[in-house]
Amino acid sequence: MKNKEPLILAVVVFFTLVTYYLVEPFAHSQMHKHVEGQDFVYNGTADIEEVEHRIAIAKEGKADTKALEAKLQKKKAFWSDVEKISKLKGDVVAGEGTFAMCQGCHMEGAANMGGVTPPSLAHSGALYDTKYLIALIKDPAMASNVDHKYADTSMHPMGSIMAMVSEPQDIANVVAFLKAKKSGEVTPKEAFVDSCGRCHANRYEQLTQSGFIPKTKADIKTGTDIAMLDFKKKVAQEQISLAGYLGKLPPDLSIIIRARSEHFLETFVENPQSQLAGTAMPRVGLTKDSYAKVLEYLEDSGDTKRHERESVGKNVMIYILIFAIFALLWKREIWRDLH
């Protein structure tokens, strides 16, 4: 009797793989159109392409493109100015003087301003891209690609900087200062807290928009912990303020690493508009290395046991192969006189 098993195995494997391919890679490619990243280069390419694309669609629909054309010109001019400023040599000492104007809002324990608390700049030189920083000081809304929210971009919470620090050389100086004096080694935790933590909580790491949850003690007689209640109230107020400013409370990022693909997260952080058009989330301007640190923090919170999974997995695979070999040897012995 011919042994049909190899053919049967091939048929089963074939149909299984076809089904898998259709249900997973193929279906997901239909649900999520691929978005190209910019490899953490901030020179306005994505922003300009976005407007050009919208002009093309408007033209197809025979709609008026005057407003969009004006916007396109504005963006092109803006990013070309940024390019020019980036070529200036920045004076670190002069920059320190200019930086004093930033500290008014960007200080430790800063107050909530217009809905959001200004982030710490302690590591900003290390975390953020040079051109992005230049663009941010020149026009925060344009740089972070949320200018569509404002008729006048100086209405952005940081919009006042446009009048305070407007000279190209001043901008170059303060950015040089940040790069020289506000850099240093940044841990994944610091990277996340500084660049994401004022809007996004991470409850699995005990991080709220108002900082890490402190250790408090409950009153021994009643069991109530007034210090914790006060802290929770503070966080709740900050969250209400954020939700008011942004339209809704930004999601907790504890497990985002398993809720979105790595490609989505990378392109989203680099340019939120590319994945969720119209979102209130600003572009953050992280460098490639800083983003890697943020990603590591997200993996630590949402995929904590990944190293253990890989090492235990390797050992289990070795074991199960040995198990299969012994199963084969036993089967051969039993079937020796059955065939």
């Binding site: 074991y319 198990f323 012994f326 199963a327 040897l329 036993w330 012995e333 020796r336």
Partner: peptide, 19 residues
């Protein structure tokens, strides 16, 4: 034959036991 079979069976059982 049966002793080798018995040995293989025990060996396989041992591997399964380790798991």
């Amino acid at each position: 034959n049966s002793s080798r079979r018995g040995f293989m069976g025990k060996a396989f059982g041992g591997v399964a036991g380790v798991g």
